[in-house]
Design a protein around this nucleic acid. Sequence first.
DNA 1: ATTTAAATTGTTATAATATAACACTATGTA
DNA 2: TACATAGTGTTATATTATAACAATTTAAAT
Lengths: 135, 135
Amino acid sequence: MKTMHKEHTLTKNQQIIFDLIDKSPEPMKAYSILFNVQKKGIKAPLQVYRALDKLVEIGKIHKIESRNAFIACHNSSCRVAKATAFSICEICEKVTEISSAGLSKYLANFKDKDGMKYIKYNLEFFGLCKKCKVK
Amino acid sequence: MKTMHKEHTLTKNQQIIFDLIDKSPEPMKAYSILFNVQKKGIKAPLQVYRALDKLVEIGKIHKIESRNAFIACHNSSCRVAKATAFSICEICEKVTEISSAGLSKYLANFKDKDGMKYIKYNLEFFGLCKKCKVK
DNA sequence: ATTTAAATTGTTATAATATAACACTATGTA
DNA sequence: TACATAGTGTTATATTATAACAATTTAAAT
Ligand SMILES: [Zn+2]
Ligand SMILES: [Zn+2]
Ligand SMILES: [Zn+2]
Ligand SMILES: [Zn+2]
C-alpha cells in the first residue's frame, strides 16, 4: 500500500526547483530561484512560477505570503498544503514551519460567528527568533 | 479621558485613501486605489503606498497578504494591527475580519516548541462564504 | 518668534513580482 | 492508434512595490 501523501513524481523542472528550495536554509523568492537555475536550462519566470504553483498545490513547498517567498515543507502532517503555520523573525527573516497538533486542531475546529468552519488556512506569527532576541 | 486607540489625525492623502477603502465593500488593491483617487490629485503609486503603510501601521486598515489588498478595520479590539484574522471566500473573494475573543486569546497564548510566544500574527482562513456555498 | 527635527508630499524613474497567449512536446490511457 | 491531460519554451506584458531627491508642512523646543 502506498503512503497517503506526497507521492508525486516530479517533472524535470519541478525537481530542479524543489531541490533548490529544499536545500536552501531560508525561504527563496521566485527570481532568486530563476537566477539559480538558469545554468540548468530554466530561463524564464514562467517556468519557475509554473513549477512553484504545482509544488505548492501538491504540498511539497509553501508560500510565505507576507514575504513572497517559498520554503520546502518538512512537516509530514500537513499533507496537502491546506493548513499551514509559520513563525517569522522580523529581524533576520528566519522562517520556521510550526507543527503543533494543538494548534492545528484548534484552528481546524474553529467556528466563526456564522458557525462556519475552515479546512484551509494560513497563519503567520511574527516575532524575534532566539538568536535575534539575545542580541 | 481619550479612548485607547486609533486617535490619529490623518493627513489629507491618508484621509482620502482611508475613506475610499472604508467605503469599499471589498478589499482594494493599490493601483485600483490609485485610479480612484487621481481625480483628488493623488497621481503616483508612491503617494498611495505611503498612505497605505501609515494606515496599516496605525491599525486603520489591514493588508490581506494573500491578495495584496487592503480593507478597513472594523474590529475595535484589534487596536494596533498586530493581531489579525480573516475569512476569505475562494469564489467571490469576499473578506471578513474575524473578531473572536477565543481565537485571539488562543493565538496570543500559543507557545511554539521553544516556548516562544508571539504578540503579532496574521491568520487567513479560506473557504466558501454562505452565498457561494449554496450555489 | 525662531530654530530645529520629524513627518509628509510631489515627482521621476526603476525594481520586483506575476501572468497572458500561443505553439509545441511528453505522458498516460482507451 | 487516437485522444486527453499535463508540462514545456518563448516572447511580451501586466501588476505590485520601492529608490532617490527636493520641497513643504507640522509640531515641538528653545
Ligand atoms: Zn508543511
Ligand atoms: Zn532572527
Ligand atoms: Zn482589525
Ligand atoms: Zn463567496
